[in-house]
């Protein structure tokens, strides 16, 4: 894996930001994520959490792409732009991924399942739902009703899907696994109209995006079919082509990261 994106002729190389496993976030990384989510929850305009959650579902129009050929590219663009909104508040923060194949013992990662964090409400546990985003008027906050952890997808199931060489077959089978995790989580996550209001949605989709990335690495000659590449991903200012190479979007996936200072230039 390249540690940095390929610089353009007039660009200095930029270090990629890493999306990390939600189970392996350091205390500081988790605090940054919570601070960024909290900051966007305080904004009522089109930079805020409620706005971004509403793009996926209610209020109308429901813009997400499900059960169609742009499922993976559309959600990659969606996560990228939401992550940018978070980084406007906490530079360098990234969306973690929830590896549901490895978490059969605990189900939802503790970063998202604890009601409180450091004595305060954990912004990853739940979220308010704006009045125009509710499927029913009483749905003021997100809820979950998770199944037994053993019913989450297994590594073997994911491995079988990753073996597909054809993009559409891979995407269709991955979307079924994705749908199953929504169903497993239950509550707000179990309906397209409200799913993105749950902070866990973003970690789940980060995992889906990661699996697409792993598939891309494994099948370098089997990408998105050419006729789709110039399709727009409304309402985002991006096409499918813009989503193909994640290092061009400035991020990469890592199980964990650690850094130490160098000698400097003094």
């Amino acid at each position: 894996m390249s540690p940095a994106s390929t610089p353009g002729p007039t660009q200095a190389p930029h270090a990629l930001r890493h999306r990390r496993s939600a189970r392996r976030l350091t205390t500081g990384q988790l605090a940054d994520l919570r601070a960024a989510i909290t900051a966007t929850q305080r904004i009522g305009d089109d930079r805020g959490f409620q706005h971004w959650a509403g793009i996926h579902g209610l209020p109308l129009p429901i813009s997400c792409v499900h059960h169609r050929e742009l499922f993976l590219p559309w959600h990659r663009a969606y996560l990228y732009l939401f992550e940018k909104a978070l980084q406007d508040h906490v530079p360098g923060v990234t969306l973690p991924w929830w590896d549901w194949t490895a978490e059969h013992a605990e189900g939802i990662p503790s970063a998202y399942s604890k009601r409180k964090a450091n004595g305060r409400r954990n912004p990853l546990f739940d979220s308010p739902i704006q009045p125009s985003g509710r499927a029913v008027p009483s749905q003021t906050r997100t809820t979950r009703a998770p199944g037994a952890p053993g019913f989450l997808p297994s590594p073997g199931e994911v491995e079988r899907v990753l073996k597909n060489r054809d993009f559409f077959t891979f995407q269709t089978q991955l979307e079924s696994i994705h749908d199953g995790v929504h169903v497993w989580t239950g509550g707000t996550m179990a309906d397209i109209a409200t799913a993105a209001y749950d902070p866990l949605f973003w970690a789940h989709h980060s995992m889906i995006d990661r699996l697409w990335y792993l598939w891309q690495l494994r099948h370098p000659g089997a990408g998105v079919p050419a006729p789709l590449l110039d399709r727009a991903l409304a309402p985002f200012p991006m096409t499918v082509r813009d989503t193909i190479e994640i290092t061009q979007l400035g991020y990469d996936y890592a199980a964990s990261t650690a850094a130490v200072k160098g000698p400097g230039h003094g």
């Binding site: 209610l58 079924s176 994705h178 749908d179 199953g180 109209a193 799913a195």
Partner: peptide
């Protein structure tokens, strides 16, 4: 098994969730 993440009902007015049966080949909307 396979899974379907559903829309959970229709949230528009009458006709909002009716799938058009004929599609104009010049209709570039999603």
């Amino acid at each position: 098994s396979f899974f379907i993440l559903g829309h959970g009902g229709c949230f528009g007015d009458v006709g909002h969730c009716d799938i058009p049966t004929d599609r104009d080949p010049f209709d570039l909307r999603p």
